[in-house]
Design a protein around this nucleic acid. Sequence first.
DNA 1: CCAAAATAGACCAGACTTAGACAATCGCAA
DNA 2: TTGCGATTGTCTAAGTCTGGTCTATTTTGG
Lengths: 312, 312
Amino acid sequence: MKSVVQRTGLSPHVIRVWEKRYGAVAPRRTASNRRLYSEAEVRRLLLLHAATKAGHSIGTIARLSDEQLRALTGWAEEPAALPPIVNGHTLPGDPSAGFLARALETVRRLDARAFESVLLGASLQLGCQGLLQKLIAPLVIKLGDLWCSGELTAAEEHFASGAIRNFLAGLSRPFTLPENAPALVVATPAGQVHELGAVLVAAAATSHGWRVTYLGTSLPAVEIAGAVWRTTARALALSLVYPADDAALPAELTTLKRALPASVAIVAGGRAAAAYRPTLEAIGATLAEDLPGLYAFLDSVRQPDGVTPSRS
Amino acid sequence: MKSVVQRTGLSPHVIRVWEKRYGAVAPRRTASNRRLYSEAEVRRLLLLHAATKAGHSIGTIARLSDEQLRALTGWAEEPAALPPIVNGHTLPGDPSAGFLARALETVRRLDARAFESVLLGASLQLGCQGLLQKLIAPLVIKLGDLWCSGELTAAEEHFASGAIRNFLAGLSRPFTLPENAPALVVATPAGQVHELGAVLVAAAATSHGWRVTYLGTSLPAVEIAGAVWRTTARALALSLVYPADDAALPAELTTLKRALPASVAIVAGGRAAAAYRPTLEAIGATLAEDLPGLYAFLDSVRQPDGVTPSRS
DNA sequence: CCAAAATAGACCAGACTTAGACAATCGCAA
DNA sequence: TTGCGATTGTCTAAGTCTGGTCTATTTTGG
């Protein structure tokens, strides 16, 4: 099972040597003498790796308890288990370092692998929800800011878009949803060209137990409404990012409202959502400022027939 | 009944060995000792195939129950086994035709999970290359046709785009590229709004051992060129799908050519590529009609300077 | 008689295990 | 500063385990 253990970012040799010389871990063995690591041991190895990267020598920390290690590294929470398929490496060097800054730096370099590596490290350390709220959401906002002020090129923005999208797709895959999970349609109305917000919403809702139908950017109202009808969705999420002064959008939104089933709740978010507040209020949409706001909306809309097994 | 069992994508040898060594299945026998598989056993073999592809060793999972296997693979629903063909000899020509039809049907229903299920089943039976060449590529073309003729709504097109994109992202993730893999930039020039072709190219190139920087749709020439410079890419792939009569595109392409390093090879593909042939020839771009064409281009460009010394 | 399918066994590539050697690096004493 | 030992990561060699493939041979159905 060494290949699975590669998700610690350590080489097989190192893991064996740590076990033999310092008794850092004591994995079970199969009948044929192969090492079998428990989830807890994998996490312990991650902790040890982080601690050594932070400067502690392995010989002095190998026998410490998990609690002591956590205190040493400053890792707050048990890292959430990740999709076991990942084969990437390169842990976060500094537990305290800003993932945001490193993510931005990799975007600037257009280095997809390094970028994914940062996201992976963050997801290990922060957990799925933490990743979304503490890294992805701020990152999306930051990218939007930089793009608006011209400090980010279109290539960089597109690149980050695609990379985040792909990563979140992989993150959402392992979620097994109950058959009766409520359905949500995520889209951006015609004229809205930025995808990142919608992607973020889709991932958040999926991790929150919703069955998401993602439609992407710039769809006419009729199309969105049709999709809602066809998927019998309970709610519709709209991402409004740019432009913030589209004269045609209010009409689009009212058309959309008219074409929707009356029972469908609408939520809108994104940097430009506030700019369209009157129209949004007119069509009865909820405004979600941030991810907690989105979660609150989703919980309020989720009906009691589903038992809401929330994942965290 | 072994030929019918090929719909699991496994070789006859493997199926027999799994049965003999691990007791994975226990098919009934005819009077003359031939194996007779039930539908449930075929599905079980599919599950086992998926699980082994996901990295689990057959020896440890062969005795698990179907439920455990489903949990392991994350397949909520019954795997999309192949056409329910029975004794009728409908087999050899195109096992992919069935997948294509079913994929289209799930797109029509906007059912993301069913769609993924079809893609997953196809990837098992056809393999990675087969999936791309026999299902995804035709599917992309078909979707384009339907969209052009108005038989596909924008919502369906967007939905399929996103779903395929996500699936291919997951498919490419496990690839571990050598450090010196040649780099490729994939983009569509300004004005080109269809993403699917570019996504397909990106996945194909990744699976072919290239380090891909994916930039998405509708990027100005300067941006694309800048990305090529920064990633020190050896080649650039452009996807031209729609529109086929953009008057501004030739100028865009020549600008692009001028801004690129001279050593960078350009390849163009997509339904609209032929329409811009003169311009493409003028800038020295290769025209790739299909995936084999793309592979040929990639192989011809891959230089021997990185001979993979296998030691860094 | 031939194609297809069955069995038993050989075979091979790759991954894993152990033991030990080797090379950097660091701290500390002279 | 130099020298020396301890620490720590990496590498090699030889043997084992695992799992897919292949061959030889026999049986069956058309």
